[in-house]
């Protein structure tokens, strides 16, 4: 598969009154054509900042891409001009936001909002754009698109609005779609519908999706690959099976153990103890060490590099070092790993 987007050693800081907050501290990932990459992690881990920086939509003035590259179509978006970015935004890369109740302009008709990128990037006339908008609304499953086009956001429900936002994002058939927790603000039944719609449209439009979420259930449903972020870094990346059934990083273990499953009965739900690291003063060693029951001495002194688990699976934990003692992951993870090994044997 062809690489579409390459993020290399990205560092992003926010300048605040308290000092420099190092929100992103060396992020690397690739996005391949047609795939869905999920980025998971708790609040403040840098998921949204990473993706906003791809579109260069970080707040101007106090944010800064310190170093690193975002390569797209042979162009480094980290240093591209604002003019260049305006041509890319909405055309090659577009975005779906978390809260559909606030992400549409309340004083503009739905039709105008969908037509805007079409007129801008596709040079369509108003009537052509309007015809295309009707098709798009139909595509995202909104009935009576001709009348709906003339209506305002307040005349739509939350789920409907998210469909409209998706229609706007896909209007110019972008190569990359960034979905920043697109289902978090919706109720569960609507969540399922929106996820199905996105999967369906991804096939039709052949776009790659970066899907930000903290809902592992959603990840299992949509993603091909998963990147786990913690403290402004990617700590583990792999295919969805590798992350769910053979996780290597203690943080991923924690995430998976804290996910309720259908067969978990009356036991208490697992919680990762402690709080996220203070990125104003990032710790010297592994940022997860203070919360990590498996932490070793070296974790507090030196940051672990990415260790290769398989061609597609990497994790940044000293536990993968040849000299590290063997530790037993939590029971829930062990069970999953056992299933994973069995399935691999079954395949062969």
């Amino acid at each position: 598969m062809k690489k579409l987007l390459e993020v290399k050693d990205l560092h992003i800081s926010f300048h605040t009154f308290a000092g420099e907050v190092q929100a992103i501290r060396g992020v690397d990932f690739d996005l391949y054509e047609g795939e869905t990459l999920a980025i998971v992690g708790e609040s403040g881990s840098g998921k949204s900042v990473t993706t906003k920086s791809i579109m260069r939509l970080l707040p101007q003035g106090n944010s800064e891409i310190k170093s690193g590259e975002i390569l797209f179509n042979g162009e480094n978006l980290a240093t591209a001009s604002e003019k260049k970015m305006q041509k890319i935004r909405g055309k090659d890369i577009s975005m779906i936001f978390q809260d559909p109740m606030t992400s549409l302009n309340p004083t503009m008709t739905i039709g105008k909002q969908i037509m805007e990128p079409l007129i801008k990037h596709r040079d369509l006339s108003k009537s052509e754009a309007s015809k295309r908008a009707v098709k798009l609304l139909d595509l995202v499953g909104i009935s009576k698109p001709e009348t709906r086009l003339k209506q305002y956001p307040h005349q739509f429900s939350g789920g409907m609005r998210q469909r409209v936002v998706i229609a706007i994002a896909l209007a110019c058939a972008p190569k990359v779609l960034i979905a920043d927790e697109p289902t978090t603000a919706l109720d569960v039944t609507i969540q399922g519908q929106i996820l199905d719609l996105m999967k369906d449209l991804q096939k039709k439009i052949e776009t790659s999706i970066i899907f930000i979420t903290h809902d592992l259930g959603v990840v299992a449903n949509v993603a091909d690959r998963v990147a786990v972020m913690y403290g402004g870094k990617i700590v583990e990346v792999g295919t969805v099976d590798e992350i769910f059934y053979n996780p290597q990083h203690p943080y991923t273990w924690g995430l998976i153990s804290s996910m309720p499953s259908l067969d978990s009965q009356d036991e208490e739900l697992f919680v990762i103890p402690g709080t996220p690291p203070d990125l104003l003063h990032p710790p010297k060693g592994d940022a997860f060490a203070p919360r990590n029951p498996y932490a070793m001495k070296i974790d507090k002194e030196e940051e672990p590099p990415m260790f290769k688990v398989s061609d597609t699976h990497y994790a940044a934990t000293w536990l993968l070092h040849p000299d590290a003692p063997k530790v037993e992951p939590p029971l829930a993870v062990q069970e999953r790993q056992a299933k994973f090994r069995a399935s691999i044997k079954g395949d062969k």
Binding site: R89, K91, F97, K120
Partner: peptide, 14 residues
């Protein structure tokens, strides 16, 4: 600062 302005920017508006 509102979301729909970010969306407007994300469409490629100056």
């Amino acid at each position: 600062g509102s979301d729909y302005i970010t969306l407007a920017k994300a469409k490629g508006n100056s």
